[in-house]
Simulated assay, not measured.
Amino acid sequence: MLEVADIFRAQGPVWRRTVSLSLGQLKVMSAIEQCRSAALGGHVLRCSGCAQIEVAYNSCRNRHCPKCQASAARRWLEARQADLLPVGYYHVVFTLPAPIGAIAWYNKAVIYGLLFDIAAETLHTIAADPKHLGANIGATLVLHTWGSALTHHPHVHGIVPGGGLSPDGERWIACRPGFFLPVRVLSRLFRRRFLEALAQAHRCGKLQFFGEYAGLADPAVFDRWLAPLRACEWVVYAKRPFAGPEAVLAYLSRYTHRVAISNQRLVSSDERGVTFRWKDYRAKGRTRYKTMT
């Protein structure tokens, strides 16, 4: 089976001479290239029953390696298992508009931090409102910065139990069957609070701008740039409840330790490029699954 490591080993030396990479990125490529090869050494396993010997090469354990995330995901899930409640769970997604995603390239710590904080604050605020749920809720949030087609697409996945504790902490308040919180209300509050926090970050000099966005360093230009974002709809949605805690664990295992592209999605690699499978969420049925080079 074709692997990312194969592509890195074949094309990496030439590619590294043509682009500028950070030390961290170079280390990732090196780790993936050497993973489970003689370069990292190995260990010998011997069966106590039949005395059969098996030699296995060591893993790189880099969090970006598509071969090293399965065991890390299992360990993470085992540690989270005790946190699950015997209730239905909902899947909530908060997505940043493309213009904000564009400036996030140069302001990852600030904007991704705001994405986490404002998404959590939005969930807590709306859930605590007696008009909606009137409860103190908990949530597990997972950051994703890419889409299936490997485009930059910052969004947060939230796994939320269908209810929470009453304000006095004495009883459980369950949401309505099949309905968690109103998506339109979540979206509006998320948009308002995020733009307020982003504007405050700009006033405090925490944002950097380069290239075509260099002009946004000027407060007046930045304010005009924000204006359309105050009027457009922001994508927030909640999926129907999971079947139970086991389904939550299965879902989390596909999201918490996922790398940008797995070996299973690779189709071919030649002098024309790399072809891989991707899912078009705008399409329906079997036509959703496509290939891209």
Rank of each mutant, 00 (worst) to 15 (best):
E3N: 07
A5K: 14
A10V: 11
Q11G: 06
V14C: 07
T18G: 03
L21T: 08
G24P: 13
Q25N: 09
S30Q: 15
I32M: 10
C35W: 12
C35T: 11
R36V: 03
S37E: 06
L45H: 14
S48D: 01
E54G: 09
N58D: 10
C60L: 07
R61M: 00
H64P: 03
C65S: 00
A72I: 00
A73K: 00
L77C: 11
E78S: 09
R80H: 14
A82E: 13
L84H: 06
L84W: 09
L84T: 07
V87R: 08
G88L: 02
H91Y: 13
V93Y: 00
L96R: 02
L96M: 03
P97D: 01
G101Q: 01
G101K: 02
I103L: 01
Y106V: 08
I111P: 08
F116N: 13
D117N: 15
A119I: 05
A128G: 01
D129C: 01
D129T: 00
H132S: 10
T140F: 11
V142G: 02
L143W: 05
H153G: 04
G158A: 15
G158M: 12
I159D: 02
G162W: 05
G163D: 04
P167V: 12
W172L: 02
I173K: 04
F180S: 00
R184Y: 06
V185N: 02
A201R: 14
G205P: 12
G205Q: 08
K206L: 14
Q208L: 11
F210M: 11
F210S: 13
F210P: 04
L216H: 11
V221D: 07
V221W: 01
D223F: 00
R224V: 10
W225K: 02
L226H: 05
P228Q: 03
L229P: 01
R230K: 10
A231Y: 03
C232A: 06
W234D: 04
V235D: 01
Y237Q: 06
Y237G: 11
A238P: 05
P241T: 01
F242D: 04
P245R: 02
E246R: 10
V248K: 01
V248L: 08
V248Q: 09
L249R: 13
L252T: 07
L252G: 03
R254I: 05
R258T: 09
N263M: 10
L266D: 06
L266C: 01
L266Q: 02
D270A: 13
E271N: 10
E271P: 05
T275C: 12
K279Q: 12
D280Q: 00
R282K: 09
R286W: 11
K290G: 00
T291A: 04
T293A: 11
